[in-house]
């Protein structure tokens, strides 16, 4: 499973980032709360390139370089194939950041750890997909 971003339909509105941030860290999609009370840290980033905008998100690669390069074994794959970060173990060496061909894994500098898409694995349909107003994000197998 992974989220595919379609540049041709991406509006660049940025709602994906907003809802991504709000879905994590116990905010359960409450946008207002995370922006007013918390520190919104979105996993996937909206990129604005020549070809248009698109959400740079995790491909949950079959031979995920981030898993293989992780020095602490903090990046794991769950039984559904979702690659996620075990924050108990992540030491913030950024090897995964350096290895991700999509540039998706990003530093979470204030915690000395990394952020990456976990497909909102605790809550069902990824928040970015569910809240994309134009169907530019799709969950695929």
């Amino acid at each position: 499973m992974k989220v595919v971003a379609w540049t041709e339909y991406c509006l660049g509105c940025g709602l994906c980032e907003i809802y991504c941030a709000a879905q994590h860290d116990g905010y359960n999609g409450n946008v207002l709360k995370i922006f007013k009370k918390g520190r919104p840290m979105h996993r996937s980033r909206l990129l604005k390139a020549e070809q248009g905008t698109w959400l740079n998100t995790c491909m949950h690669c079959t031979h995920a370089p981030c898993i293989n390069g992780c020095i602490s074994g903090a990046i794991k794959r769950d039984p559904n194939g979702i690659v996620y970060v075990d924050y108990e173990r992540c030491v913030g060496c950024y090897s995964c950041v350096m290895l991700c061909p999509h540039g998706h894994v990003r530093p979470w500098s204030e915690r000395h750890q990394v952020l990456k898409c976990d497909l909102c694995r605790d809550t069902g349909l990824p928040s970015c997909v569910a809240n994309c107003p134009n169907g530019a994000l799709q969950l695929v197998d």
């Binding site: 950024y94 950041v97 350096m98 290895l99 991700c100 061909p101 999509h102 540039g103 998706h104 894994v105 990003r106 530093p107």
Partner: peptide, 9 residues
């Protein structure tokens, strides 16, 4: 570090 993934690849 953000840009290093694509650079490495």
């Amino acid at each position: 570090p953000e840009v290093t993934g694509p650079l490495t690849n």
